[in-house]
Design a protein around this nucleic acid. Structure first.
Lengths: 82, 82
DNA sequence: TCTTGACTTGTCAAATATGGCAAATATGAA
DNA sequence: TTCATATTTGCCATATTTGACAAGTCAAGA
């Protein structure tokens, strides 16, 4: 997909996080409770909604709390130039 | 890996990018030339060296230019809590 | 209705990513 | 060495993420 908009990428990543979180039966509060570093539900919510362009380290912390590889959160399907 | 430091994650992501870029026979200048949005080698260098905690959208743009899935760039092996 | 829990949104300050340019530092070839 | 190319680094200004807290929304029950 040649021109995937920024907002689309962020939305897909956010949906991935939310989907995995729900599959694990976790609330946002549960999730932040599992993260060692400080993060609160404000940011989880913004990331899940695709309103924020999170840094890789923040996503990594989330992936650790969800016990999945970072690459699973970053599974954005359309990467080809055409 | 319980406590992977921020700097380690950034380094691995940066190494992934550099490795893929070299496999494709691209210089940093080639790479930025393939990116539609504005990016210059300053940032590529900083990201490849792990000196900057890039946002997911920046990494996505790089993955598009490299013609690999974002998840390949984000392949950080240690994700388990233990 | 009222309450509770889960999530969203607004605002703020501090930290930092980004883009841009210039200079410094490799690296390799002639 | 000299030259050219590639990469790294420093600095600056701007934009945005992040963390924090408060307030608002929403749904499900009692």
């Amino acid at each position: 997909m040649a021109n995937m908009k920024k907002s689309e990428v962020l939305k897909i990543v956010g949906q991935n996080i939310k989907r995995i979180r729900l599959e694990k039966g976790l609330t946002q509060v549960d999730l932040v409770g599992k993260i060692e570093a400080r993060i609160d539900t404000t940011n989880i919510s913004r990331i899940e909604k695709g309103r924020t362009n999170a840094t890789i380290h923040t996503l990594f912390k989330i992936s650790q709390a969800l016990e999945v590889p970072l690459s699973e959160i970053c599974d954005v399907h359309f990467y080809k130039s055409e």
